[in-house]
Design a protein around this nucleic acid. Structure first.
Lengths: 139, 139
DNA sequence: CTAAAAGTCTACTAAAATGGTAGGGAATAT
DNA sequence: ATATTCCCTACCATTTTAGTAGACTTTTAG
């Protein structure tokens, strides 16, 4: 399951996407509109900024804004930034590979199946973007 | 990611599948062969028994054994038993559905995508079984 | 009947992850 | 100069994860 952090990130990002013409948006506005704890959201937006998804501006008239158009923000990237690996086993993770302790990969049958799961998952998450997730797109 | 518990469960189940002709297998044997903490493994096997996947026999000559042929043990079921939901959001989980707090499902674009991810994942995990994961099948 | 073998059960614990909070600091606009 | 707004470090409570301890029950063999 996605952590609250990642779920909140998606809420915030879609809010920013829906309001991208209004210039920088206050953390507090997103927090209110999407019912997310202000201080927690601060951390999340900061992470998204450091990861290169958001830009920010300080002082009056400041706030956060999307740095790229929604069509270019892949869902997979957002998940990886905040939750880490998407794969179900470390030994089949593309971005966070780690060797499994208890099995030799050559003869372990599980990793083949889990690699297949990973590919099927990424088929969606690498091709869908923020634009596919906007509220307005549902209407 | 799958928890250690579930990973160990798969190790144990494949071991039992590979040795299913030998009758009941000792916990201690599985523990040694697959390098899993004995006491932790005890808990796991007990859960698997309660969930109807394994049978057991006490006393000398006892141990655990598969109750169904490996071809009938779906990977999805094992994961759900030990780790819970497979979906990435509670509101698109088939077996552990919960309403999302922060979004109205009708207008939230995220759950459509996540339902698609879920379906793609289950396409694999509901159709692959223990038999697809045996070590011997790799040779 | 008894002893050994094996799974069963309850409870406990340490460490890590999760979700969230506090408060001051730095940059910027007016 | 000052109000505004994001930035940063640190902290905290709760839950989950991974594992351990030890007593108890069932079964088999002799």
């Amino acid at each position: 399951m996605l952590s609250k952090k990642t779920q909140y990130a998606f809420h915030a990002l879609t809010y920013l996407a829906e309001n991208k013409d209004k210039g920088p948006v206050l953390i507090s506005e997103i927090s209110q509109e999407r019912q997310i704890s202000l201080k927690f959201l601060e951390n999340i937006l900061l992470e998204l900024k450091k990861a290169g998804v958001l830009g920010s501006k300080k002082g009056k008239g400041g706030g956060y804004y999307l740095i790229k158009p929604p069509e270019e923000v892949k869902l997979a990237k957002v998940i990886r930034m905040l939750d880490g690996p998407i794969a179900l086993l470390p030994c089949v993770s593309l971005n966070y590979y780690e060797k499994c302790e208890n099995c030799q990969e050559e003869i372990c049958g599980l990793n083949h199946v889990m690699a297949e799961v990973r590919d099927n998952t990424l088929k969606v998450l690498e091709n869908k973007t923020l634009a596919d997730v906007l509220r307005s797109s549902a209407s």
